[in-house]
Every structure is written in structure tokens, then in C-alpha cells.
């Protein structure tokens, strides 16, 4: 599944990084601890988090993640948006909580396999 399809199916808002919407998704990782993501997330996964600062995009880039979804309608810092555009990694937003979004995404990715 592509990031663009996911946006449509989960009704996500695109904040930035539109150039990366064609990225293919291999799964997802949920964590707000950056070292946890650094150590355990895998290439092409979606990262669900409540962290909004630019280090999130640095990690997403280093780990070759497909996209980042911010939960609960949280707004990213300006530098995060800039970094997302530079790296062409979509930064997405949902009003759902982490639990709700993860449940929906899990079901969606399982169904598509």
C-alpha cells in the first residue's frame, strides 16, 4: 500500500513532504521514545508518534521510514515541516489517539495482505 492510499483510507491530513506520497508502506512502528524508533523501526514503515520536533524527521530520514503520523491533532514545529519537505518524507496528521489510529492501521494493513 502506498502512503497516498493510506491517507485516503484513514482520512489523514497531509502537512508536508508531498513528494514522498508515492512511498510504499511495509508496516508501522509506534513509539515516542526516539532511541526505540532508532533501534527498532524498519525501512518503509510508518511511524506513529506524538513528538513534534524536527529530530523526528531526522530519524525518519536515517531509518528510511515511509511517513510520520502525528496523533491527536498535534501540530509540528516549523523546522519539522521544513525537514519533512527537504527529505521528501510525508508528515501526516490525525485527530485520532495513538490507540485508535494504530487499531485502524493494523486492520487496514492486515486486510491488504
Amino acid at each position: 500500500m502506498k502512503v497516498s492510499e493510506l491517507i485516503e483510507k484513514l482520512n489523514l491530513q497531509v502537512i508536508s513532504g508531498e513528494k514522498g506520497l508515492d512511498r510504499e508502506i511495509s508496516g508501522a512502528y509506534v513509539s515516542d521514545l526516539l532511541s526505540d524508533v532508532m533501534g527498532n523501526a524498519r525501512e518503509n514503515q510508518i511511524w506513529i508518534t506524538l513528538q513534534v520536533h524536527q529530530n523526528v524527521m531526522a530519524i525518519a530520514s536515517l531509518k528510511d521510514l515511509a511517513a510520520v503520523i502525528l496523533v491527536k491533532g498535534l501540530q509540528p514545529h516549523k523546522s519539522t515541516i521544513q525537514h519533512s519537505n527537504e527529505e521528501q518524507i510525508p508528515l501526516l496528521s490525525t485527530t485520532d489517539s495513538t490507540f485508535e489510529l494504530s487499531g485502524k492501521l493494523y486492520a487496514l494493513l492486515n486486510d491488504s495482505q
Partner: peptide, 12 residues
């Protein structure tokens, strides 16, 4: 608060 400092860095 930024999500660093979880004590996982050196282990990683």
C-alpha cells in the same frame, strides 16, 4: 520530554 534520554542509547 523530547523523547530522548530513555537510557537506550548506549545499548543501541
Amino acid at each position: 520530554e523530547m523523547g530522548f534520554g530513555a537510557g537506550m542509547g548506549l545499548a543501541n
